[in-house]
Nucleic acid binder design. Structure first.
Lengths: 191, 191
DNA sequence: CGTCTATTTGAATGTACTCAAAAGCGGTGG
DNA sequence: CCACCGCTTTTGAGTACATTCAAATAGACG
C-alpha cells in the first residue's frame, strides 16, 4: 500500500497511527481486463484508487456513442463523482483496460475519515480542486481548440497512453469520431 | 452578510464565535458594471462571493475570441481556480455585468481558516466537489449535444439569465458564435 | 440625436460526421 | 501453427453543423 500513502503524503503528513486507521478502511480488489468496475445505472458507493493497471471512465449518450471522461493509471483516483455525491444512479461506466489492482474506499468510511482525520479531508479537498482545474482546462480546450490541437496537447500530456490504448479511445477523449481521428493522424504524420 | 452565512449554513453549522472569526476576514467591495474584478495575467489572490449584482468569468484565446466559463449571480462564488491554487498568472477575466457587491476572502485567510475552523475546509471541499460535477456535466454536454440542445438545457437551468445578459454571452457560454446563435434561436422560435 | 455595440441575415467555406467498404491485427480454437 | 473471427483502423464519398466575412438593422446610452 506504499503507493496510496505516497499519494496522500504529497499533500498532507499523516502520523503512523493515522496511516494505520486509514489503511484499515481500504479494500483491495483485482480486476481482469475488459471487466467493469462500475456501470451506469448503479449508485457509486466507493472511491477507486489504481495501484496498478489501467482503467477508463466513460459515458454513453442517447445515440449509443461513448464519451471518454478519464483514464486512470497507477496512482490515480477515479469514480463517478456525481453518483458518489448524490447517491443517485450514475451515468459512468468504469472499465478495466489492463489487469488492475484497485483500492476501494467506501463513501461512508471516507466521510468518517474526514472527521477522524481532518488531514484526509484536506487531502481530498486538494485532489478535487486539482481535478476541477484540469477539467476546466479541458472544457476550454474543447471550446477553443481544433481536434488537431487537442490531440497534440493530449500527446504532450499523456505520451505513454498513446501506445497503450486503442486509438478509438483517444479519439473519444479528444471528442471526435474514430474515422475522423484516423484521417487527422495520418495528416499530421505526413508533415 | 446574511447571504454568505446562509450559503455556508447549507453545508456546515458554524458556532457564533466561528461566524464572527470568519466574518472578520472578509472584505466587501462595490464594483460598477463593466469594471474588471480580475484580469488575465494577474495572480488571483482572493475568492469572490457575490452578494448582489452579476459577474462573468471568461478567457480570451489566441484568436481573440472570448469563452465564457461561468456566470456568478448573488449567492455564487467565483475566482480563477487555476491561478488561486498555483499562484501563477491566470487566464481568467472576471467582469461585472451588473453593479455588484462582492465579498473578498484572501487565499491566505482562507487557508488559515481551514485550520482554525475545519468545518470551513469541509464547506469548500463540498463547494469544489459540486463545481466539479457541474463542470464534468458541461464537458459531456459539449461533447455529445448539438448547440441547440445545449441552449435548451441552458434555458432550463438558468431561465433568469436569458433576459438578463446579452445573447452573445450566452452564445459564448454554449460554445457557438453570436451569428450562429442568432440563427439557431430564430429557428427555435419558428417552431 | 448620434455613436457604439449587439443582433440579424446571407453567401461561401470549413471542420467534423455519417455511412459504407476494405484492410489490418490479435486472440482463440481446431 | 495457422486459419478464422471479431474488432480496430483506414479510406472515400456525401452531408451536416457551425464558422467566417460582409453588410444591414436594431437597440442602448450618453
Amino acid at each position: 500500500m506504499a503507493l496510496i500513502l505516497d499519494n496522500i503524503g504529497k499533500h498532507v503528513a499523516l502520523t503512523p497511527a493515522e496511516e494505520a486507521l486509514f489503511l484499515s478502511k481500504l479494500e483491495i480488489r483485482h480486476y481482469k481486463a475488459k471487466s467493469l468496475v462500475l456501470q451506469a445505472g448503479e449508485v457509486c458507493t466507493h472511491s477507486y484508487f489504481v495501484n496498478s493497471g489501467l482503467l477508463r471512465g466513460f459515458t454513453i449518450n442517447d445515440h449509443i456513442v461513448e464519451h471518454l471522461m478519464s483514464f486512470a493509471c497507477a496512482g490515480w483516483w477515479i469514480g463517478d463523482m456525481y453518483s458518489l455525491l448524490s447517491q443517485q444512479p450514475g451515468t459512468l461506466f468504469i472499465e478495466v483496460l489492463e489487469d488492475a489492482e484497485v483500492v476501494l474506499l467506501s463513501k461512508t468510511d471516507q466521510e468518517e475519515l474526514y472527521t477522524a482525520i481532518p488531514k484526509l479531508e484536506r487531502f481530498f479537498r486538494i485532489l478535487t480542486e486539482n481535478s476541477l482545474v484540469a477539467n476546466q482546462e479541458r472544457l476550454m480546450d474543447n471550446l477553443s481548440l481544433t481536434a488537431e490541437e487537442r490531440f497534440e496537447k493530449f500527446c504532450k500530456r499523456y505520451p505513454s497512453l498513446i501506445q497503450q490504448v486503442p486509438q478509438k479511445q483517444i479519439a473519444s477523449y479528444i471528442g471526435v469520431t474514430p474515422e475522423f481521428f484516423s484521417k487527422m493522424k495520418s495528416k499530421l504524420l505526413r508533415k
